[in-house]
Amino acid sequence: MQAVTLGPAGTYSHRAARAVADDVAFRESVTAIVDSVADGTYERGVVPIENSIEGSVTESLDALTEADVAVVREIVTPIRHALLAQAESFETVASHSQALAQCRDYLEREYPDVHREAVASTARGVERAREDPTVAGIGHPANADPEDGDGVELRVLAEDIQDRSSNATRFLVVAPERERDDGGGKTSVVVYPGANYPGLLLEILESFAERDVNLSRIESRPSGERLGDYLFHIDFEAGMYEARAREAVDAVREIADDGWVTVLGSYDTEHVVS
């Protein structure tokens, strides 16, 4: 099996993807990853969905809404950020926007005058640091050594620079739509109500509460149809093999009669130490 995730080699996504497949390919965006699974190019895709400090990855939410794929697994991994550079003096810190945000307090305290540059991934920022001595990257400490043995070895200027020691990221493993499963302890759905009236969201929430189904996350995203029109991403702690889960989702479908409900899949969670 071959999996695809955010590249280049050495990203946190790459580390999570190694728990899925030994053969890992790379794309530069979450949308490209999800699309390449939907069209059958790859059997599995691994995308970041939520960080414990910075919250949801909106590109992932939107990509899962647009593509015909299934969520078949969840991987949770701790995030250990290090500051990597060729020398102690540098002018720019380059990393993924989420990594920069997760280290905001450290950067403002230790390097208030250094420019911050958002790039496609943490590994891309580390590559920039290898290429340019005026640039530092933020990534896993192991990224200081080149993956292929070639290139400049970076210095680890500081470790565990994330603002909270509990920093962790959830990754979802996506598969072709035909592999959607009802088994697992957790389910993700997308709800587009197609309406807007007082009490609408309460009705949706009550559909789960009345059946003793715990919601672990709910987030609104613009539908793209018009300003002020939203859809909801909902994770709940039950599998679709359970009657209470099916009944809750059926109740939501009745509420969203003018819209739609997509069950992305039920799955189990695996904790992976990076």
Rank of each mutant, 00 (worst) to 15 (best):
L154S: 09
L154I: 08
L154D: 07
L154F: 05
R155M: 11
V156L: 04
V156P: 10
L157I: 12
L157G: 10
L157F: 08
A158V: 08
A158Y: 02
A158I: 05
E159T: 15
D160W: 08
D160T: 11
D160R: 15
D160V: 05
I161R: 12
I161F: 04
D163F: 03
D163C: 00
D163E: 02
D163I: 00
R164F: 07
S166K: 10
S166P: 03
N167E: 11
A168G: 05
R170P: 07
F171I: 10
L172F: 14
L172R: 12
V173C: 10
V174G: 13
V174M: 09
V174P: 10
A175T: 11
P176I: 11
E177K: 11
R178E: 14
E179H: 15
E179C: 09
D181S: 15
D181A: 15
D181G: 14
D182N: 06
D182C: 01
G183W: 05
G184L: 08
G184R: 10
G184A: 13
G184P: 10
G185E: 12
K186H: 13
K186L: 12
T187M: 09
T187L: 10
V189T: 12
V190G: 04
V191F: 00
P193F: 04
G194N: 09
A195M: 11
N196W: 08
Y197K: 07
Y197E: 11
Y197G: 04
P198I: 11
G199V: 05
L200N: 13
L200W: 09
L200V: 09
L201I: 05
L201R: 02
E203Y: 04
I204V: 15
L205Q: 05
E206T: 11
S207K: 07
S207Y: 02
S207N: 11
F208E: 08
F208S: 08
A209C: 03
E210L: 04
D212Q: 12
D212I: 02
D212K: 11
V213Y: 03
N214P: 01
L215V: 01
L215C: 02
L215T: 00
S216L: 09
S216G: 14
R217E: 01
R217N: 02
R217K: 08
I218K: 00
I218D: 00
I218C: 06
I218S: 03
I218A: 07
S220F: 00
R221G: 00
S223W: 01
G224H: 02
E225V: 13
E225N: 04
R226L: 00
R226M: 00
L227H: 06
G228H: 01
G228T: 02
